[in-house]
Design a binder for these strands. Structure first.
Lengths: 161, 161
DNA sequence: CCCAGATAGTCAGGGCACTGAGTATTTCGT
DNA sequence: ACGAAATACTCAGTGCCCTGACTATCTGGG
């Protein structure tokens, strides 16, 4: 029997964690707006007028996925897409008033949901939880684009010796 | 500016973690077989002859998703689907020889990938990492089926003796 | 000025993940 | 024995996520 214990596989755990979150989001936050859609709206609250590519960079989505998410938000009337007069390749994105209202409403519910989701952990453990996941995710993302950082730290993330 | 800090949102981190894993899997393990497909094969190595629903339960996939994954593995000739003669609703699943070979090969690569993925964490931190994620995921899954914990594991599909 | 290369976005295609509706089969209460 | 309920699976529909190929636009070197 060469079967492996999946509970020690970070990828498997990550998937289960994400699914569990997805389901809780659906019941506690919204059945209409998804978590990635909220992330995009949030990026536009922080920095109105971003273009698609940059929004994708902020929330961690590739150009194809971000295009789909934005097109759904556009169809729902939650954001505007306008050609950049300075650069005809780009679209500049901004939330509509309804988009801003929706973002505010969901922010409250999201905070509540996070409390429920993290309830099994103590405050200290929650801090560790964030720290460990961030470190693993950051490192793995760094493995892809080692030379990508323009304003960030250009860590060669040496794989030791 | 009511923008939220997504780096303290477990759902956002879970998604980023899962994406990072997906990409690393693609480069270090396989471009053909995905991580969920491997999880299904692994479940069948541990317990040959499971039916679809139970496999889904083992790896954490719903009935629709598990059906798709299994159909892909079937098309690739990695597993067999046979009607249960005792219960005409079920399909009993077993890896083919090639499926078993593929599973062994991928097990090795998966172990290597996990090392790289978890390299940013010390051994102790890795233990904590697993523990915290498992606790959060388990609790969130428990929120869905609160009555499930009462129900013991269904014996009847004991595989031979 | 002009073209090669870089960049922003689109589109086709494959795979994961869920819900809700529908079919076939088994099981249970009467 | 019979019909209702439960169960295993399928199918349609929506959304996320990636790659690779393509179009349109901008930028820089000769």
């Amino acid at each position: 029997m060469a079967a492996v214990d999946l509970t020690t596989h970070p990828g498997h755990l990550a998937r289960r964690l994400q699914q569990a979150h997805y389901l809780l989001w659906n019941t506690m936050v919204s059945e209409e707006i998804t978590s990635p859609q909220f992330a995009v709206m949030n990026a536009l609250v922080a920095e109105p007028g971003l273009d698609q590519r940059t929004v994708g960079e902020r929330v961690g989505l590739d150009r194809s996925t971000i295009a789909e998410v934005i097109s759904r938000l556009d169809r729902r009337g939650l954001l505007h897409k306008v050609r950049d007069p300075q650069d005809g390749r780009r679209f500049l994105l901004r939330l509509t008033d309804e988009g801003a209202r929706t973002h505010r409403k969901l922010s409250v519910r999201t905070a509540r949901m996070n409390q429920v989701f993290l309830a099994p952990l103590s405050a200290d453990e929650q801090t560790v939880f964030f720290d460990l996941i961030r470190r693993v995710a950051d490192a793995a993302e760094g493995l892809r684009n080692p030379a990508e950082s323009r304003r960030g730290p250009a860590e060669p993330l040496a794989a030791q010796g």
